[in-house]
Design a binder for these strands. Structure first.
Lengths: 203, 203, 203, 203
DNA sequence: AATGAATGAGCGTTCATTCAT
DNA sequence: CATGAATGAACGCTCATTCAT
């Protein structure tokens, strides 16, 4: 009974592409209206597929958020890893400050995504711990520096968690201050605190 | 048609009491099943009042959470203030470590409440900044210590935010590690980092 | 436990006064927001009494509307009766046109009340018949005129209903035309139709 | 877990059919119990669909009433137009009385529907004017007759409104008189008044 | 693979009415 | 007479999910 004039849209696409389109549609809607008010129907409509198709790729809205969280972590981790790697192998303070600098820059770049996936929704567990890939990377850095005698820390994981959360807090605070913060001042101060945290007391 | 056995429950109570019972009922349910799955009906049923009565005291579920948030902040602030006040007026490192110690203890005590009101639900704004009463108190402490020449910090607010978030993160992490963590070790390490953060480098 | 500062408002008033205040409060609210959206609470609050007091004077919202309907009918009837009575006993066309003229004027004056009680709510029965006091009065007039040989009508009640509804319709239509209609033209035309209806064909 | 006996009712139907079934279910319920007491749930239950399905086709109960109103107006208009069209082009009194005759017959036939959509609920505006398609049709008829010199009327719209409302009132009154009224007598009298209204004074 | 009509449990919210004080 | 805290039935509406096509 469907009219012959129905446009013969290609009824199929590579799964990865479909999935990506759905994620992108969801992301934009989350940004525009928030996570909770966004309905599956809006997502599929934006992605130009039928409602049922959503469930071919995801099992729920939470599932999409999971995917976005992975994306966030991955992107930020790459930025930080790259920045740290540019430093000389034995320039441990340099590596640490590069970590801070890249972290700040990355957070600012990914702020919208970050807010959607960590503020508006709730992963599952406890909170700061959940940016785990970042913390693990920082942990490895701190441990390596300690092993090399660059600084003295009692418990690398403890320090990593502390440092990461402190960094996270001040960066959030800076973002929250509406007007474009003085980012270089933020980095300066953060660098100082990073160094202090590992027992390197400049000045 | 109502059975003669209908209990003649007192039809009225002091408003503060009713309100308190509703808050308490909601709190317990939030703890047991989480915030989102808890319905107004369950709350009123637990508080042994009719559904409509809820709306005499609150305008929505979010409203109850607000009340719980206020309760959390108030209780924690009192604990911290009290602890800091016990220290000699010029014992700045002592005050700072007392802050950390009381903060940890308080967080452990109030953890369930904390999780309900800050992890499961979302206040409004950005996150760590929102424990504002705590940060403000710490800010005042840092500023006073700096004025007294006890330590050197560039930006008291920045440092307070950093310190608070670092503290928050490690405490959360400790709580998350299911087994009863070694709390004194946590406090020791946190004290060290607090002192380092303000430029006092022990050892 | 109530504070001694509570104003000692006179706790009692003559019943008729209380009742009148409630009716007046309800009427104003019906006008402002419509009948359905107006709650008992708003009415009592406006009348500055407690909710329960309403039920001392009325059994429901419908009950208040009933009272307002009575008021409307009474007021309009008086206007019309008065106008008709000014005419000479044998001036039947004069009486009929006076009826129309006073009816139009009365409707215009009482329009807000009319709309509240006849348009927004529903009396009970069928509609046009319900302005019964008016129709009965018109019926008596038509019958008397017919008996006096002033006009020829087959069925006085039938004619009264027809005339009343025609009159009602054109008056409503005139009111509905936002801008202040030319009321004298309305009356002129209506007079003509009244006379034609009873078989007096002017011109 | 659903019983194996769950009937595999066809999950889909042509939209127009579904819509029609919902309208019909609503209509019957409105008739049986009135508009206000009828709930969406009853409508869907009667139509043998789920509650949510209602909102696929209508946005509210008022929306269904709108549909019923359209149906009423359309049906009555067709009856009247057809009747008028049977008369000779120059038989103006014939056309007018045919209008009245068909109108009465139509009202009697559609009375239940009429009461539901115009008495129990409220369209939006002022009342009698709202049967506009009917009035417009009558207006055209009166105007054409006047242009042809068949009768003399000052203001065709005014006369149409008057006539329509008079007709409506007497028809309602006749319906309201429970016992099957003498319909031919009603029509006779109405015809006479129609003619008088346009200045044709029989006898 | 894709569709989208249909589902229905579930929720928040309102408010007329009661009755112990 | 008057109060107003408490009631609780009732309702409209949403939307994640299913499944026959």
């Amino acid at each position: 009974m469907t009219s012959a004039a129905t446009k013969p849209r290609p009824r199929t696409k590579p799964p990865e592409e479909r999935r990506g389109e759905l994620i992108q549609a969801a992301y934009r809607l989350f940004l525009e209206q928030g996570v909770v008010p966004t309905t599956i129907e809006q997502i599929t409509s934006r992605a130009d597929v039928a409602k049922g198709t959503f469930y071919l790729y995801f099992s729920s809205k939470e599932d999409v958020l999971e995917a976005l969280r992975d994306r966030f972590e991955e992107e930020l981790l790459v930025k930080v890893q790259t920045a740290v790697a540019t430093k000389a192998a034995d320039d441990w303070p340099g590596k640490l400050t590069a970590w801070a600098r890249a972290g700040v820059a990355g957070y600012f770049d990914l702020k919208p995504l970050h807010d959607v996936v960590f503020l508006e929704s709730r992963p599952a567990g406890t909170e700061g711990l959940l940016d785990n890939a970042l913390i693990d990377h920082l942990l490895a850095l701190l441990q390596a520096g300690a092993d090399a005698g660059a600084w003295a820390i009692d418990d690398a994981r403890f320090t990593a968690v502390f440092l990461f959360n402190g960094f996270h807090g001040v960066t959030d605070a800076a973002c929250a201050a509406e007007k474009q913060v003085n980012r270089s001042r933020l980095i300066d101060r953060l660098e100082q605190l990073c160094l202090r945290t590992v027992g390197l007391n400049p000045r």
